[in-house]
């Protein structure tokens, strides 16, 4: 028994040591990319909800800044009025839609541009991917519909295990905030490729997108601070909603399902105990045992 424990302990210790040592070893190789700092998000945790005012501000930042290069092709104007979203009314969503021109055909089949309707999707800033690439130094700016779920950073051991219990799922928005705020002068000796911009948090540090946001760039009507920090958080929250529009409904239903399953598990447990107890009893008594202590 002792020998077995020793071997097990040695194995565990060995694998732990390897787990700790290996990343340190690997880090010497790659250029250091710091982990994005965590943020407080209203939509984190089991009871998380989007902050409507924040989504509305983030939408303003997207509309006035990001939208000039980035499409949002999978989000429709009607979504702005969906429950669990930015909280616009259907009329307000339709009004936003009417600000946009949508390519369509008239009755004679001629291409026209008509006013947007609630059912339309956000139109792209470039006619097609190739045009987008040509206008942006060879690479098309990515669509932002799923970007908050499409970006992450390596959590590493043991954090990814803890995340299961803390429900940390906000790597995407944390990374986006860090990226938007991470522009700085390249350190000495860093060779920035032509057309690149130095960003502390971008893998490889040379990002094609120039610094998109600065203090005071977008006017807020609700008195929120007009700072880069606030813009970055608001637009990241908005993009999280764009990528996961049913998050609020998901967490709400999740809580109900959890309560239900815990109750059912409890009932099942006692039923199981009862059923097994009855078969146990005569045998346990025959064997001179106390039947109330049976657990099998």
């Amino acid at each position: 028994m002792t020998m077995q424990r020793t071997i097990l302990a040695l194995t565990l210790a060995g694998s732990l040591a390897a787990a700790v040592a290996a990343p340190a070893f690997a880090q010497e190789h790659s250029h250091e990319t710091p982990q994005p700092p965590g943020n407080k998000w209203s939509f984190a945790g089991p009871f998380g909800k989007y902050d409507e005012a924040q989504l509305q501000r983030g939408f303003k930042v997207y509309k006035e800044v990001c939208a000039s290069c980035h499409s949002l092709s999978m989000v429709a104007f009607r979504n702005l009025a969906d429950p669990g979203g930015p909280g616009y009314s259907p009329a307000q969503a339709a009004a936003v839609a009417a600000e946009y021109k949508i390519k369509d055909l008239d009755d004679k089949g001629e291409p026209i541009e008509r006013d947007g309707r609630a059912a339309d999707y956000f139109p792209p800033p470039f006619p097609n991917d190739r045009a987008a690439a040509a206008a942006n130094g060879g690479v098309a700016p990515p669509d932002l519909s799923t970007i908050a779920k499409a970006r992450t950073y390596e959590r590493g051991f043991p954090w990814f295990v803890f995340d299961i219990f803390t429900q940390y799922q906000e790597q995407g928005p944390d990374y986006l905030v860090a990226l938007l705020k991470g522009y700085e002068d390249p350190p000495q000796g860093f060779q920035l490729p032509p057309g690149g911009n130095y960003n502390k948090y971008f893998p490889g540090h040379a990002i094609a997108m120039p610094k998109p946001l600065q203090d005071g760039q977008v006017t807020y009507d609700d008195g929120a601070p007009q700072t880069l920090d606030q813009y970055a958080k608001d637009v990241s929250a908005f993009l999280m909603w764009a990528a996961e529009p049913h998050l609020v409904a998901r967490k709400r239903l999740g809580f109900q399902v959890m309560i239900f399953l815990i109750v059912l598990a409890g009932l099942m447990y006692f039923t199981k105990k009862k059923v097994w107890h009855e078969v146990e009893k005569p045998r346990e008594i025959a064997a001179g045992q106390d039947p109330s202590k049976t657990t099998l």
């Binding site: 239900f260 059912l264 009932l267 099942m268 006692f270 039923t271 009862k274």
Partner: peptide
């Protein structure tokens, strides 16, 4: 007591299946 437990468990399970 036992019957109540069985019925309650069955009922809750049936509600879950329906949901």
């Amino acid at each position: 007591r036992r019957d109540f437990l069985y019925i309650a468990t069955g009922a809750v399970g049936a509600v879950g299946a329906a949901a």
